[in-house]
Amino acid sequence: MIRYLSRGEIAERLGLTLGTIKSYDLRGYLPAADAQIGRNFGWLPETIDAWNESRPGRGARTDLEES
C-alpha cells in the first residue's frame, strides 16, 4: 500500500510548523503533490526527503544574483 504524507505530516517529518509548510505550499516552494483526492493532496516520503535535501538552508537568499 502506498502511504502519502499530508502537510501536517510533512511539518512533523521536517521539524517545521504546519504554518510554515502551508506558506511554502502557497508560495509554490513545495514540490508538486504526488496524489490528489478531491481537495486533499499527498506527497510520497521520498519526494519530500529529496526536496528537503535540495532546499537552501535557513536564512539563505535565493532571490539574489551573483555578480
Rank of each mutant, 00 (worst) to 15 (best):
E9F: 10
E65M: 11
L44V: 04
F41M: 09
S6Q: 12
D25L: 10
P56D: 09
R39P: 04
F41C: 05
L16S: 02
E12Q: 06
I37R: 10
K22P: 05
G59K: 05
A33M: 04
D49A: 12
L14S: 01
M1I: 08
G19T: 03
R3E: 15
I10H: 07
R3I: 14
E53C: 09
T47I: 13
D25V: 07
M1A: 08
E9M: 10
L14D: 00
E9S: 04
G28R: 07
L64D: 12
F41P: 00
F41V: 09
Y4V: 15
R13P: 11
L26G: 04
G42L: 04
S23T: 14
P31F: 10
E9D: 13
S54V: 03
G38L: 11
R55Y: 03
A50C: 03
G8S: 05
L5T: 06
R58M: 14
P56R: 08
I48N: 00
L14I: 06
A33C: 13
L44G: 06
D34W: 05
P45C: 09
R61F: 15
K22I: 12
S6M: 11
Y4A: 12
S23Y: 13
G38M: 04
A35V: 14
E66Y: 12
E12I: 00
L5K: 04
A33F: 05
L5P: 13
T62I: 14
R3A: 13
G57R: 15
S54W: 03
L44Y: 02
M1F: 07
G59W: 07
